[in-house]
Each structure stands twice: as structure tokens, then as C-alpha cells.
């Protein structure tokens, strides 16, 4: 009786996990399957299997330029946000200074504000300043909402660093600069890499804030959204699936590398 209950409770969690992951992956799987659909105008009904969409991912008008914009914006925003956010994280993690509470609030608020408000308020100021909306306004917006996530990620890494490691370096004749270069930075670097990956995926996938500040520039999510009404080409599914697998490979490789590093040669 007791073992039966235990068996049930243990497997209940397993069953539940399978269901939960199915819920998460059903749309991804659907997107993937329909990337092989031999569609005519809109990719709604299954018409048979084809490799064509994967062979010609740019076979539809505008889809690849949109993807290109997303990648360019994503890389640029990630680069800027990672630098700015990492600097803030080091200030918060390594120094005592006045204005710490204000800084923390300023970092927290963008994460706690609905994207809609962020996008709308930025649009308001761009309009008031008479700025042309487009590539650069999107970059500005993406850097803004990515900074906080970078700060939080890198700060957590710095906080988990044993202060004795830096003390040990100082004890072993490394001055402040050498200690940072040889010990602090290499140990925080994986956190920075993780933060950059997070920033890129946030930027790449952003729709709401981008939609407010894009002007006539089209990113990949904007492309998908505007074409959803008229019927989405399967090439969008191809790109979505490809990005999914690419990201998965990067994450898995990252884990393998970090594990290998930990374990050593």
C-alpha cells in the first residue's frame, strides 16, 4: 500500500513533467513540421512534404532582409548592453558607494514595467524630439531593456564569487589590476557570456517595443506578425526552427565547454 502510493506519487510528477514539456513544445514542433509543408499561398493546411523551403529560406520577399535586420540589431544591442550592464554590475558588486539604492531601483524598474509602457514612452520621446524612427531607434530601445537583465545576471555571478579568491591573488603578489585580469575577470566571464546570450535572445525575439519604435524598418518578429494575417510563408517557419536549433546547439556546447573546463584536460 505504502510502496504503491510512493510509486504513484513519484510517477505522478514524471507524468506531469511530460505533460508540461509537451505544452511547451507543441507549438515549436508544429512550427518545425510546417516548415516542410509544400504550401501554396498560406501555410495553414498540410499539403505534403518538401525540402524546398529549407533549400530556399530566402525564397520569399522581405523575409531575409528582416532576419538580417534582427541579427544586426541583436548583435549591436547585445554588444552595447553587455558592456554597460557589466560595468554597472561591477560597481554594484565590488564597491560601496552612495546612491546604491537609487541605482538598484533604476535597474529593477525597466524589468518590472510592461513592455508596452517602455515602447510607448520611448515612442513619445522620439516623436517629441522629432527623431526618425528606424534601425537606430530600435537599437536604442533594445539596449535600454537589455541592460537590466545583463546587470542582474553578471551581478549574480560576481556575488557567487568567493572573495577569498581575489584575496589569494593579492596575497600572491598580484596588484589590483593583475588580480582583475588574472582572477576576477576570467571567473566572471561565463556570467558575462550568459548575459550576452540572454540579451541577444531578448533583442532578437522582441516584438512589442520594436513595433512602437521601428518606423519602416522590419525585423523578423515584425515580419511574422504583419504577414500572419495574409498567410505566413513556410520560410518563416524555417527561420524560426533554424534559430531554435542554432540556439540549442550554442547552449549545449556552452554547457559542455564549461563542464570540460571545470573538469580540466
Amino acid at each position: 500500500m505504502k510502496t504503491a502510493t510512493r510509486w504513484f506519487s513519484r510517477n505522478l510528477i514524471r507524468i506531469y513533467m511530460v505533460l508540461g514539456f509537451s505544452y511547451l513544445f507543441v507549438p515549436v514542433l508544429y512550427t518545425f513540421i510546417f516548415s516542410f509543408n509544400d504550401y501554396v499561398k498560406s501555410n495553414l493546411v498540410w499539403r505534403g512534404f518538401t525540402w524546398n523551403n529549407w533549400k530556399q529560406p530566402c525564397g520569399v520577399l522581405d523575409v531575409c532582409p528582416a532576419l538580417g535586420n534582427s541579427i544586426k540589431i541583436g548583435l549591436l544591442a547585445t554588444f552595447i548592453a553587455t558592456i554597460l550592464g557589466t560595468l554597472i554590475a561591477f560597481a554594484l558588486g565590488r564597491y560601496a558607494f552612495k546612491g546604491r539604492a537609487v541605482t538598484n531601483t533604476l535597474i529593477f524598474l525597466p524589468m518590472a514595467s510592461p513592455e508596452l509602457v517602455l515602447g510607448a514612452s520611448l515612442l513619445t520621446i522620439f516623436l517629441n524630439l522629432g527623431m526618425n524612427l528606424g534601425f537606430w531607434t530600435i537599437v536604442i530601445a533594445h539596449v535600454m531593456f537589455c541592460i537590466s537583465f545583463v546587470v542582474v545576471t553578471v551581478k549574480a555571478r560576481i556575488a557567487s564569487l568567493d572573495p577569498r579568491l581575489e584575496q589569494a591573488a593579492m596575497d600572491l603578489y598580484a596588484d589590483e589590476r593583475e588580480t582583475f585580469r588574472r582572477v576576477t575577470f576570467p571567473l566572471v566571464a561565463p556570467g558575462i557570456a550568459g548575459a550576452a546570450l540572454l540579451a541577444f535572445s531578448l533583442s532578437f525575439d522582441d516584438f512589442i517595443i520594436t513595433n512602437f519604435n521601428s518606423g519602416t524598418t522590419i525585423t523578423f518578429p515584425l515580419y511574422v506578425y504583419t504577414h500572419a494575417e495574409r498567410g505566413l510563408p513556410a520560410q518563416a517557419n524555417v527561420i524560426g526552427s533554424a534559430m531554435f536549433f542554432l540556439a540549442l546547439i550554442i547552449v549545449v556546447l556552452g554547457q559542455v565547454v564549461s563542464k570540460k573546463r571545470k573538469v580540466g584536460a
Binding site: V26, P27, Y30, T31, L248
Partner: peptide
């Protein structure tokens, strides 16, 4: 554990709009 954690975040990498449209089609008339 680590693999499952990656899987929790993995759907993020497939565009959010695409997945929402996928739901529409999964639940839709066809």
C-alpha cells in the same frame, strides 16, 4: 537536471510570435 532546464527556456529561441500563431493554427478550424 541541466538538460531539462535548457528545455524550459528553449522555446524562447523559436520566435514568440511564431509560436503564438502556431497555437492559433493548432486550435483553429483546420
Amino acid at each position: 537536471k541541466n538538460i531539462l532546464l535548457v528545455l524550459v527556456v528553449a522555446p524562447f529561441f523559436c520566435s514568440f510570435i511564431l509560436r503564438t500563431i502556431a497555437w492559433k493554427q493548432i486550435l483553429g478550424q483546420n
